[in-house]
Design a binder for these strands. Structure first.
Length: 465
DNA sequence: CATCCACCGGAAGCCGGGGAAA
DNA sequence: TTTCCCCGGCTTCCGGTGGATG
């Protein structure tokens, strides 16, 4: 391999594809964009919010605002090592797995489990970045981060990895650049092109986040076996991340034998660690704008969510944005509480966005049921009845009960509902029973934003329940 | 303790939309 | 333009399930 170190130029960082997307940009967001992703771990310039420019139009006048380095409270931001709290052991285990890659050798595969917001992606990306930066001269390390909730089919995974690694700098002048389309080719062609791209690297670190959402684990096996089966000369190290504890035990045996990993399980943060994380980033805000109760309250809210640092960060940021938008000089307890409400509504709106209309109808049926029926839990059959009445009322297609069950499944996966099994005994049969985890009023409001459901009045929903 | 019910959920396959290559 | 392929949404089919009941 020729001209030196890492090919992954700083502009195309680990960040740009990934939890950036998970960072459901809150609708209480202020006017400025996300700020360019910053991979070097240094806080962005404190003048980074465009203050060095003067804008004449009073409509866009520059307020001081509560933030000074807003980038630092973005969910995808990968901080310096000394701002990463309580993950030292994990960092050192991962780095020893990746150590050989730095010298062009074969990195070990790693499987990481742990609940959401426990720093799995953050630490993986941090160590990967360190490895890439540390690589010895003339060794070319490719690295890529893939969120499998967005690219879940085999072809999508292969094509996305290929596209991310397909830097024109890796080619010689007279060489043809491999084209990697999104779709349209037979599977084996996608693989072939990926191997061609990988051949330009000595080693590659591939981070697969939310790997449990892959439609098939075949891709995992293919990547893990690539060197062994002479598909590519590039040494591939996979960091597979899942928030399902037993995911890697349940892989099909062939994949499991090809994909031998170092296993890591990330513990949730405790309330103190969350506070420490937040304090480690409080210089995102201007001096003195945070009132004393803000950080403890944000930490307390997220402690209710099993120590999810990602949600904490989002809440922290959103509270600031709310203060900014209302032109308040300080961030106060009330901002945090309202931000928490807004985020919950946003989460649900984001969930619905892009889902089929049938999902909205299904949500409407469970919202109506939980508003107007006495029972906490509602069995599938009853929900389906309500759903049918709703679709008939607005003259839309009605899906079969089997598909309806799949939709309920998706709702459960996205934590919109909670499902438990009930057995009515001889003759009563076995049922799944569902409970809404959100405020039904809020759900009605959000579903009604869709014009197709505009004809249904809240009062008429009572009939369906 | 076998029975029974009514739903559960995996598997397979269909269909229309959309993209790439020949 | 035609052919080939992927993909999401959907249906049909069918064996599996488990606790109150008789």
């Amino acid at each position: 391999m020729s001209n030196g170190t890492s090919t992954s130029d700083e502009s195309r960082d680990l960040d740009s594809t990934s939890s950036d997307g998970q960072d459901d940009r809150s609708r209480v967001q202020t006017s400025e964009p996300e700020g360019s992703p910053n991979e070097n771990g240094k806080p962005p310039s404190s003048e980074g919010d465009g203050q060095q420019f003067k804008v004449d139009d009073p409509l866009f006048s520059q307020r001081k605002g509560v933030f000074q380095n807003k980038e630092m409270v973005r969910v995808g931001w990968v901080p310096d090592g000394d701002r990463i709290v309580g993950r030292d052991d994990y960092i050192s285990t991962i780095s020893s797995c990746l150590n050989d890659a730095v010298y062009g050798g074969a990195p070990n595969h790693i499987s990481i489990t742990g609940k959401t917001g426990t720093g799995k992606s953050l630490v993986s990306r941090y160590v990967t970045r360190r490895a890439v930066n540390a690589s010895v001269e003339d060794i070319r390390i490719g690295h890529t981060y893939l969120d499998c909730s967005k690219s879940s089919t085999e072809v999508q995974v292969i094509s996305t990895i290929g596209q991310q690694l397909n830097d024109e700098d890796i080619y010689d002048e007279d060489e043809d650049i491999v084209k990697m389309p999104d779709t349209g080719l037979p599977k084996d062609k996608f693989y072939k092109r990926l191997w061609q791209i990988l051949d330009h690297y000595d080693s590659a670190i591939i981070i697969l986040d939310e790997v449990d959402l892959l439609k098939s684990d075949h891709v995992l096996m293919s990547l893990a076996k690539a060197v062994e089966s002479n598909d590519t000369s590039c040494q591939i190290g996979i960091i597979a991340i899942s928030n399902q504890i037993n995911f890697f035990d349940e892989l099909n045996p062939r994949t499991k034998s090809a994909f031998q990993t170092q296993e890591l399980n990330f513990d949730p943060y405790n309330a103190n660690q969350i506070q420490e994380i937040l304090r480690g980033r409080d210089d995102a805000f201007r001096d003195g704008v945070l009132t004393d109760e803000v950080i403890p309250l944000v930490a307390a809210f997220s402690a209710q969510e099993h120590g999810d640092a990602r949600k904490a960060m989002r809440l922290f940021r959103t509270a600031g944005e709310l203060a900014d938008r209302e032109e308040d000089d300080m961030v106060e307890e009330d901002h945090v509480r309202r931000a928490q409400d807004a985020l919950e509504k946003d989460r649900f709106r984001d969930f619905l966005q892009g889902t089929p209309t049938q999902m909205k109808a299904a949500c409407l049926s469970i919202a109506a049921k939980s508003l107007y029926s006495r029972d906490d839990y509602i069995i599938t059959g009853e929900l389906y009845d309500a759903y049918q009445q709703i679709t008939n009322a607005i003259d839309m297609d009605t899906i079969g009960i089997r598909r309806f069950r799949d939709i309920l499944d998706e709702m459960q996966l996205s934590q919109v509902i909670e499902t438990k099994e009930v057995n009515m005994g001889k003759g009563g049969g076995r049922h799944n029973s569902h409970r809404l985890l959100h405020n039904p009023e809020a759900i009605l409001d959000i579903v009604m934003e869709d014009s197709r459901f505009g004809d249904i009045s809240k009062s008429s929903l009572k009939r369906f329940a």
